[in-house]
Design a protein around this nucleic acid. Sequence first.
DNA 1: TGATTTAATCGCACG
DNA 2: GATTAAATCA
Length: 811
Amino acid sequence: MTFLLDGFDTDPGDAGLPGAASHTPAVDEALLAGLNPQQREAVLHRGPALLIVAGAGSGKTSVLTRRIASLIQTREAWPSQILAITFTNKAAAEMRERVQQLVGGAADGMWISTFHSACVRILRRQAEAMGLKTAFTIYDAADSRALLKRIIKELEVDTLGLTVPSVAGKISKLKNELGDVDSYARGVNADDPADVAFLEVFRRYTDGLRRANALDFDDLIAETVHLFRAFPEVAALYQRRFRHVLVDEYQDTNHAQYALIRELTRPILPQHVPADTRTRVDATGGIPGASLTVVGDSDQSIYAFRGADIRNIVEFERDFPETRVILLEQNYRSTQNILDAANAVIANNFDRQEKKLFTTVGAGEKITGFTGYTAYDEAQFVADEIQALHEAGAAYKDMAVFVRVNSQTRALEDILIRSAIPYRIAGGTKFYERAEIKDAMAYLIQVANPADDLALRRIMNTPKRGIGPATEAALQAHADRIGTPLRETLRDAGQLGLGPKVTKAILDLGVILDEVEAMVPTSPPAEVLTELLVRTGYVEALRATRDPQDEVRAENVEELLSFTKEFTKRNPDGRLIDFLTEVALVAAADDIDDASGTVTLMTLHTAKGLEYDTVFLTGIEEELLPHRISAGEVGGIAEERRLFYVGITRAKKRLYLSLAMTRSQFGDTAVALPSRFLQEVPPELIDWRQSPGALELRATNLSGRRRDASADGRPGRRDGARRPTFSYSTSLPPGPSAAREKREWTSAVTNTVRDNGDLTLASGDRIRHADFGEGRVVAVTGQAPKAVAEVQFDTAGRKRLLIKIAPIEKL
DNA sequence: TGATTTAATCGCACG
DNA sequence: GATTAAATCA
């Protein structure tokens, strides 16, 4: 290893060689306008390795884009020699756009993409070397789970504690560590039946992927690393091409990604340098490694659960000698109050590099705290505040509501709908995860990659053709016998002794797939999809059912069709496989559309990298943030704290911290405790509208049915002393007493929903609301069924209500 | 045999 | 609450 690192030694005579020189380039001052000294240096430093420790909101995107622009402007690098890696496609698109603004069309030849997209590009070009066809398909998490489910069922190993999620997680972890079946087999514990069984599942899963000509998400990275290691001359191709590698969000890289970066920036040995190279060689006849720039913040590392290794950034200096480290601590996003809260919270994580964010914009408003009785109560507070801010001139699009888990959005959605506040959910149930979209995609995948059995099984009986489980099993048995993909067996249906009706259905499907497959090479994706949908009668079948939801589903499929058309507009030469790749790689954070005039709901994870004027951080409760599952994992609490930190630092002007005293989960209602993290925020920074203590007191007086934490049999852990002293855990008793108690809280909001039909209200009407009591209608806007009434309640203040569904009656 | 209805189970974040 | 297995219907 050492001899390779020697290649990083710089030769002073090589000033013109990209990536090897250490000097200050002559960069246009305009490119540096508005940068502070540290940012400036981060743009201008030249050398083999640069680590930019960028605190939240410190302008790192600006630094990265200008650094890229400076390389191009000074002619130190061609655009094609630059590889910039971001965390999401959205971040990549944004970076490309900002670089474009700085250098114009020169940005076109650069690779600015996610790890996964970059690897797919490399793998498609070099797929033959890996024994794959270039049209390999990409299995998303759901596809992988479907395959695992079949295997686990087949082997009947679920009794050994091998569940689909546990096995999927373990395989993913192994692949992130660049492990494979063989390496696992060497270390397997032969005395442990569960371990042996896991190995068999892993082996069959790997075989299944290979036979289906498919790669899962983790393979995309790992296989690229394996490719580079197995074929140094292939690696040399990319090492020679990319002279500048830049990686954003480096704290969230896993081992495989780290290895990939290592391979890409490795010096090229003389024997792998082609004779006709135009890149300058060093004294030994080799080519020095590419210049590497990484940007990250270990305080924002929130993906350890999926294999991100914080050591990658902590030990960067050791891994890459001659690293220059630059700290960016000045924050250009938030007020000092928000930063003080963030600094105070993150200071509770020991073992971190000291870093304190500061700003020059002033203290700003205090943080607002609120404790609701229930999640609905909390949601009502959020909705009321959003409405008040909106009326004061704030745009909906500048506000965001963060949740720890997706299930929290339900109460928020209910209330936002009732309050007639426009909102959207980033991530959530993603478009491409809907059943009808997966169906349509499976058709496309089948004709692009006929080896993909998983896709074929999905569509074999969708729409209904009378091909049931028994028939499928017969086809599968035949496929196993003759050793071909399932698809091949469709043609042989006549030989299997099936009923005439079923046989015809199978043959017909086979003919459709074959004929559509033949048009793939010459037709754009939209035509292929249309042909499939029409000939299989998929949309028609949806429209024919009684289920009103199916109408929406049919529309979704048509939206997918328009996506394919859009795709072709963007990429006139785009093939079907390119479209499928793009879809496979879209992520939750990618579909956040800033332009729309709506409040955005999202998880804290999705929020990373974003910023909003106003941020509502909801559900700041024990068991939720920190999430209960994190308690059992090493460093789990610290990671949850970073998640809280990430949430706080998204806010530019206003931050709200809210929680509920009770939270309903899985049907029953449980008492929730204020999060320990709340106590880490300096009390003088929070202005409580309703503090946890105030409600706690009342709850005590009223219920008197508390049990101590020890009663539920969970021994106190190391961090037990830090838990709030009023620790208890019990279910709220249902029945009349609970209902009566609820009425004691004037702001208690229930989840009552009603269909008022075509009830019409006019200004001046008196109404009674199930939660807010009586009030007078002040104004009515909009058309039924979306008409909104503005009501001045006698005790609950002014609210906006969607008339059709509000629990109200006219008096 | 396949389609439809009913009961039972299980829940974290994501490219 | 959504998904999935068992039970019943055609």
